[in-house]
């Protein structure tokens, strides 16, 4: 295999000392980046250069670096998780960029996702939404039943599984012009609503999770579909339609 041509890039990175400070886009030239390196590796390289110069490194979230934990974020060249489809930023590779390109890197923006530092935002609002109803109440006192003992229609099981693929990254919020969390909430509502174990608390779940999302300051849904396009896990907006149905019937009967 021949070594692919290295990339010379201009980065425009959002720098902000803390939540109260005023931030700005700073320009960093970066040379000799392998197209095989991941986007986060590229930022690691930038950070070691910054540290060597005695500057403070750029803060950004990451953990698994294999597309399953939902820690990484970043609004890259005008889109959450960058230009590629169905990938998280950690799985995005520099071969998706051209030599000489200017790359804009900003934090996910939403009232409910305040900036902590640089590119790092506080996504604990998602945790509070999950705590408001994203669970089932089961007694775990030693005689738990095998989940597979309950027969579930294959189609429902598959559909619930697709919904459960949401990693809670927040790209849907970042992409939405209204910073709406509808896709995330809908995925969490659906993954339970489709299964018999989840049906029991379905009404309270949808009412409470939706209420919490609004309380956190996420916006209404305009059905633009931006979330579905940018979601690294391909969560469908059919989930939002399901959430809306569930919400209406729960509001009427509860």
């Amino acid at each position: 295999m021949s070594a692919a041509k290295k990339l010379n890039l201009t980065l425009k990175v959002w720098r902000q000392k803390n939540g109260n400070a005023k931030g700005s886009l700073e320009t960093y030239p970066l040379k000799d980046i392998s197209p095989d390196s991941s986007f986060l590796e590229m930022l690691d390289i930038l950070n070691s250069e910054l540290i060597n110069k005695g500057d403070s490194p750029v803060s950004f979230d990451h953990d698994c670096r294999e597309g399953i934990c939902g820690s990484c974020s970043l609004y890259i060249n005008g889109e959450p998780h960058g230009p590629s489809r169905l990938v998280t930023t950690c799985q995005l590779h520099m071969r998706s960029f051209e030599d000489g390109e200017t790359i804009y890197i900003e934090p996910f923006r939403a009232k409910a996702f305040p900036v902590i530092k640089d590119l790092m935002v506080d996504r604990s609002a998602f945790d509070r939404i999950q705590h408001a109803g994203g669970y089932i109440s089961v007694n775990t006192s030693g005689n738990t039943q095998d989940a597979n003992a309950i027969p579930i229609e294959k189609e429902d099981a598959d559909e619930a599984f697709y919904s459960a693929a949401c990693i809670g990254c927040g790209a849907c919020v970042a992409a939405c012009k209204n910073a709406s969390a509808s896709l995330f909430v809908a995925a969490k509502v659906s993954q339970y609503a489709l299964l018999p174990q989840g049906k029991i608390e379905a009404k309270d779940r949808v009412l409470n999770m939706v209420k919490q999302a609004e309380k956190e300051g996420f916006g209404p849904c305009s059905n633009t579909g931006a979330c579905e396009v940018e979601c690294p896990k391909g969560i469908s907006i059919e989930n939002i339609a399901r959430m809306n149905r569930e919400f209406l019937s729960a509001s009427i009967s509860k």
Binding site: K12, L25, N77, G78, E106, A110, K177, A179, G219, E230
Partner: peptide, 14 residues
């Protein structure tokens, strides 16, 4: 819901 907007955004892509 988004008081601070993006400096560079490509909503037409999605």
């Amino acid at each position: 819901a988004r008081p601070d907007g993006y400096a560079y955004s490509k909503p037409g892509k999605n």
